[in-house]
């Protein structure tokens, strides 16, 4: 049994990389989701075209290919990224494209009468969006954002293909060294599930907090 503690330690090291990728990737995804989602609703044609191109491109191509571009092709353009940076970039841009559609949909779901109240109260566009529309839209976005974060967590496994030692990569190392498949892969199965549960739990808690006082308005 003693030999396994070392191997489990390896997998836990990988778990840290996975958590790091998920956190940083989610932050980038969130930023991209808001930038591209709001740009799609912009008055300016250029912003709308740019945002649509980004969203369609990253939703329409494989994350696997995007990751290889970030790591192997960008250096030809003078941008050399570490495996971790390339992983965060590909994951963040990919999931951000899905998130952008969530932001757009949620903002559009806020009723016209709220915009009209903003005009009647003489708020400018930015004040209306920031103080009135987005706080209500955020509640609509949250559950789907939770889903997206879990998708991102699971997608982190692809980074093992650019030699980043995340949890899946480490499980393969352990398997190669011990010849045992069950133990390492059962371990990471449980760890992935635990991380995904933590995300769901956190998002649900956030939702409850934000929905307080809004009974009957959004469910």
């Amino acid at each position: 049994m003693g030999q396994w503690t070392g191997y489990i330690g390896l997998i836990l090291d990988g778990a840290l990389v996975t958590i790091q990728l998920t956190l940083m990737g989610s932050i980038l995804a969130l930023a991209m989701a808001f930038v591209a989602g709001l740009a799609r609703l912009s008055r300016f044609v250029a912003a709308r075209v740019l945002a649509t191109a980004y969203i369609e491109f990253f939703r329409g191509t494989s994350i696997f290919v995007q990751l290889f571009w970030a790591y192997f092709v960008l250096p030809f353009f003078g941008i050399a990224l570490s495996p971790l940076q390339a992983g965060i970039l590909a994951l963040g841009l990919n999931v951000g494209a899905y998130g952008a559609e969530v932001v757009r949909g949620a903002v559009q779901s806020v009723g016209r009468e709220q915009y009209e109240a903003c005009i009647a109260l003489n708020l400018n566009r930015w004040q209306s969006m920031y103080r009135v529309i987005l706080p209500q839209a955020l509640l609509v976005m949250l559950p789907t954002f939770g889903n997206n974060a879990i998708e991102l967590l699971k997608a982190t496994a692809v980074v093992s293909l650019i030699s980043l030692s995340d949890m899946t990569f480490q499980a393969q190392v352990v398997r190669a060294q011990t010849g045992n498949t069950l133990v390492p892969f059962a371990t990471i199965l449980i760890l992935y599930f635990a991380m995904a549960s933590a995300i769901s739990y956190g998002v649900r808690g956030l939702e409850r907090r934000m929905a307080r006082g809004l009974d009957g308005v959004r469910t």
Binding site: E113, E116, I119, A120, N122, N124, V132, L139, G213
Partner: peptide, 20 residues
Amino acid sequence: LHLMRAKIGMVFQLFNLFPH
């Protein structure tokens, strides 16, 4: 329009309060 709107207030049929 911003200057002009400052002179006018409106109350709506369905209140349009900010629910949050």
